[in-house]
Amino acid sequence: MAINPNETVLKVEDLRISFKAYGGMVQAVRGVSFDLKRGETVAIVGESGSGKSVSIKAIMGILAPNAVIESGRIEYDGMDLTKVSEEDFHKIRGNRIGLIFQDPLSALNPIMKIGKQITEVLHLSKKISSEEAKHRALELMHAVGIPEAERRFNQYPFQFSGGMRQRIVIAIALAGDPEILICDEPTTALDVTVQAKILELINKIKEERHLSVIFITHDLGVVANMADRVNVMYAGKIVESGTSEEIFFEPAHPYTWALLSSMPDLQTKERLLAIPGTPPNMIYPPAGDAFAARNKYAMKIDFEKEPPSFKLSDTHYASTWLLHPKAPKVDLPDVLRARIERMKGAK
């Protein structure tokens, strides 16, 4: 398969998704656009409730029944995934786009043997004999680094540790031989040492199988490890997007600043810059910039008018009025600037 690095495999355009709730419509995703190029890893970073999981559920066609896609397109292979019928989606889900969930225990069927759970996907994706399916499943288990695959084939999920379970989930996601792999916080439930191993595994199979990966997380350390490009989401919008270097070394949106400086790293001594307040109620999303109420750099216009996306470079965009030519010049917070200098100096 020839790899054209600039070929766009998936394109999300102005996606808007709301949920029907008692209090009204919860506007979970409010105009999200991003694309995924072949062979790259795009990370989506944000807090819980920022709409990152909802966006990828729309791509997989597994939105909850009370969700409404209000507008937007998800272009994939000449199709618009928001309009594909459930029947046709069966051919895409798993076979073309694979998904790894956050919690490996609840993603697996507790009363079905591991082997069966993998071969089930193989049988669904194409007509093969059960011997062949078993052979393929053992290959997959070997590929994701499960020792003694023959014996493990007949075990149940509870007999596996958290890291091993996540490897099984990855094996299942790979069974249909997808070209896009979506990882929804795959390591949040795991220990750091196990997390490091799983991230290495995902990177390895991405190289081997020429996968394009969408990686969802709230851990900026994991983002730095995995991502080629980063989209920062807040209150249902992408507030800043750029390459990994641009986001970590030249962040432009105050929310990205806050995210980067709110967690201590191993050198931090000074008081943390906490973000005051909580994310807005998405039934009544605020007018203007949703982050304005928690942003000490907010100007009057932030509360009145939504900022457009300002272009900083061909790959770097940010939606904040601070980038408007008429806005007062605001420098990076000192703590953050010091940290960036330190990071650039590290080898």
Binding site: Q195, A196, G221, V222, A224, N225, M263, K344
Partner: peptide, 20 residues
């Protein structure tokens, strides 16, 4: 040492070359 080497740091430069 193993535990420390597994912490992902929010720094793309060190992360790409990190040895676990």
């Amino acid at each position: 040492k193993a535990l420390l080497s597994a912490i992902p740091e929010p720094n793309p430069i060190t992360e790409r070359t990190r040895k676990r």
